[in-house]
């Protein structure tokens, strides 16, 4: 589905991502983990076209999308959320969803229901709580037609109940045939729902494997705890 090959990016001499390569299989949930500053969000920004890589290639369904503007990558089928939510705060829920896809109220309510956000469509986004804004952002990312969904720390700043709900949301999406790549710090969450885990450290891929293999790996432990 998605493949990164030897992708590198540095910011003013600091290497954020270095010769990073991995693949995401169709109909799976893949988690990207690693300590702070490992380059996870930079990988997301490069994949969604917000940051141009210095070198390397990114392919989506075999099509080279390297260096394309963000809106074209979005149109090619990558939808995403952000670590710090980016809802259109002065727009209503309806208009937020409308930007993602032209559709009717019934459809919109269905998407909101699927993410457990029960609010009237006319609510202004800024009136929602932070957790609810995250859900709205997720609903918006789901509404946009896509093949691959990138979620940047979906559990950050949401209450434990919503966290449980997120698990079932993501599992349902996988059942529907969606492919998801997510960044997550909550290890229980990651181990519970992922098919594949990719460990990043200092901008490089340290280890790729099934959740069970990852928890046993010595190198991964070292990266997290220090030598």
């Amino acid at each position: 589905m998605l493949s990164l090959k030897n992708v590198s990016k540095s910011f003013g001499g600091v290497k954020a991502v270095e010769r990073c390569s991995f693949e995401v299989e169709e109909c799976t949930i893949t988690s990207l983990i690693g300590p702070n500053g490992a380059g996870k969000t930079t990988v997301f920004n490069i994949t969604s076209g917000l940051t141009k890589p210095d070198s390397g290639t990114i392919k989506l369904l075999g099509k080279n999308i390297t260096g394309m503007p963000a809106y074209k990558i979005a149109q090619s089928g990558i939808s995403r959320t952000f670590q710090i939510t980016k809802v259109f705060k002065n727009l209503t829920i309806r208009d937020n969803l409308l930007i993602a896809k032209r559709t009717n109220d019934t459809e919109m309510n269905r998407v909101l229901e699927s993410v457990y956000l029960n609010k009237p469509l006319d609510t202004i986004a800024s009136e929602l709580s932070y957790g609810q804004q995250r859900l709205l952002e997720l609903a918006r990312a789901l509404s946009m037609p896509h093949n691959l969904l990138l979620l940047d720390e979906p559990t950050a700043g949401v209450n434990p109940q919503i966290r449980q709900e997120l698990k079932s949301i993501l599992r349902n999406l996988r059942k529907e045939g969606k492919t998801i790549l997510l960044i997550e710090h909550d290890m229980d969450f990651v181990m519970d729902i992922s098919n594949t885990v990719i460990v990043l450290n200092e901008g490089r891929v340290l280890k790729t494997g099934k959740p069970k293999e990852i928890v046993k790996d010595k190198k991964v432990l070292e990266a997290y705890l220090g030598k």
Binding site: L50, A70, Y71, K72, A74, K86, V87, F88, K89, R140
Partner: peptide, 11 residues
């Protein structure tokens, strides 16, 4: 409100 968000929604 958020130009980046608009661009990743394909605008």
């Amino acid at each position: 409100d958020d130009e980046t968000a608009a661009s990743i929604l394909g605008k």
